[in-house]
C-alpha cells in the first residue's frame, strides 16, 4: 500500500483527513496514526484537527448523512417537527447511525439556507421548505 501522505507536509493534513474520510467513510485510528508518522506530527495534533471540524468523523458513519439545521431561522419554521418525522422514518435519534448504515442523522448549525427554512443537507444536497410530510419521499432518493 502506498502511503497516503507521501510527499506531503503538515499543511496538507486537513485535506488528507477529508480525502481519507471520503474514501473510508470516516477517519480511523489507523489513518490518524499513519498520518502522524508520515507528516512527522504528534498523534494528538492529528487527532486535534480530526475532531475539531463538525464535518469530519472519527466514528464510522452511514452512507448518507442527514444534517438538519437547528439554528434560529429554522427553529422559527419548526424544524423540530421535521426532525421528528425523520426520527420516525429511519428509527434513530440525532447523533446515531442506522444499523444498516444507510443513514447517519445529525442536528447542525446554520447551513445558509434560511430563505428556505426549515432546511437540511443530505450529503451535499440542500433540501429546503421542508414539512414532515415531504420527508419520506426525499429519503427514498438515498439508498
Amino acid at each position: 500500500m502506498t502511503n497516503i501522505a507521501e510527499g506531503k507536509t503538515p499543511e496538507d493534513l486537513l485535506v488528507l483527513l477529508k480525502e481519507a474520510q471520503d474514501e473510508e467513510g470516516y477517519i480511523s485510528e489507523e489513518t490518524m496514526i499513519e498520518l502522524a508518522e508520515t507528516l512527522d506530527m504528534s498523534r494528538s495534533d492529528v487527532y486535534g484537527v480530526a475532531t475539531f471540524y463538525s464535518f469530519l468523523s472519527t466514528r464510522p458513519q452511514g452512507r448518507n448523512i442527514i444534517r438538519i439545521c437547528k439554528s434560529l431561522p429554522c427553529h422559527l419554521k419548526n424544524y423540530e417537527s421535521v426532525a421528528e418525522s425523520i426520527e420516525k422514518e429511519i428509527g434513530i435519534k440525532p447523533g446515531q447511525t442506522t444499523a444498516d448504515r444507510r443513514f447517519s442523522f445529525e442536528l447542525t448549525n446554520c447551513i445558509g439556507a434560511c430563505d428556505k427554512a426549515p432546511a437540511m443537507l443530505i450529503n451535499d444536497d440542500v433540501h429546503g421548505n421542508l414539512t414532515p410530510g415531504k420527508i419520506s419521499q426525499i429519503l427514498e432518493e438515498y439508498k
Partner: peptide, 24 residues
Amino acid sequence: REGAGAYICGEESALMDSIEGKRG
C-alpha cells in the same frame, strides 16, 4: 479550499489556520 464545518473559520485568523491544515 474547502472548510470542514466550523463557524469560527469565518474569522480571518482561524480561516488562515484552517488553510494551513490546522484546527481553526
